[in-house]
Nucleic acid binder design. Sequence first.
DNA 1: GCTTCATGTAACTTAATTAGTTACGATTTA
DNA 2: TAAATCGTAACTAATTAAGTTACATGAAGC
Lengths: 149, 149
Amino acid sequence: MKRNSRLSSTLHILVHMAEKPEQALTSEQLATFIHTNPVVVRRTIAGLRDAGIVTSSRGHGGGWLLGSAPESISLAEISAALGETLLPFSTEPESPGCLVEQAVIAVLDDFRVAAEKLLAEKLSRITLADLTADFRRRYDLIGVSSHAL
Amino acid sequence: MKRNSRLSSTLHILVHMAEKPEQALTSEQLATFIHTNPVVVRRTIAGLRDAGIVTSSRGHGGGWLLGSAPESISLAEISAALGETLLPFSTEPESPGCLVEQAVIAVLDDFRVAAEKLLAEKLSRITLADLTADFRRRYDLIGVSSHAL
DNA sequence: GCTTCATGTAACTTAATTAGTTACGATTTA
DNA sequence: TAAATCGTAACTAATTAAGTTACATGAAGC
């Protein structure tokens, strides 16, 4: 798992889970999908559990399951549960009292708030189900082309 | 200069430059504004020079000047010249051949492209002149309130 | 010309962040 | 009770970005 790929790695995991809705997948299994190790998986998706997006169970036969239907899980929720910042730049004051900085931060903050709202709206319109549908489309295409060969 | 504050630090510098349009400011002076050192300033705004947003001159009386009027310099250009990514997440494949990953990346990439376009449009509508105007508003307010005391 | 002031830039050091790893306790099932 | 699994703390390693030092280059003033 590379840096800055938490969102895509997590989506990768979640689509796999959506494809096996009845089967609890272990951290170990999920880890192999994204080429990392089980502890990193648990740590990464701990926030999703807190948000109810997934559930986990311990012991024999335990593992991870989606907490609700893929249609009802949006990328906005997932991103928020991961604690990802949508915009990467900071607007923390570093020179308290400097009016120039205050002006810069005010303008930048307005932009940031508006942009985050916009992005969250866009992300809320994409669900896990959209991703699984896209996956199946690709899967079927491969099937067809293999058949055609 | 903190991490992830390159955009706000650079804007801070540029507003100071816009307030002294006739006077070349040295890296040393600019560095004090954002509490860092001259080399970091040069490195940070080197991209702005390449983009024509600022000019630099060496030797006695040298330093940095805006390359054009504050009204014609947008935050979109500045951000681009800094090489800042507007969206922080990666969509690089890590499991070539995995259809699930391909689906995730395709959807995420569509989102990223659309979002970057949107953000760039919003940023292109904010100019350095807007920032200096905001600064002057704050400055005048302080003046008035000091006077009133 | 020589000195001074400034940028340009390479090379190195330091600090911060995040992924990866190890270890072990807690919980569940068989 | 044994095996499987998550939860989590603590540590290590890798990566990135800022900070620093050093020096070459170029411009201005004397």
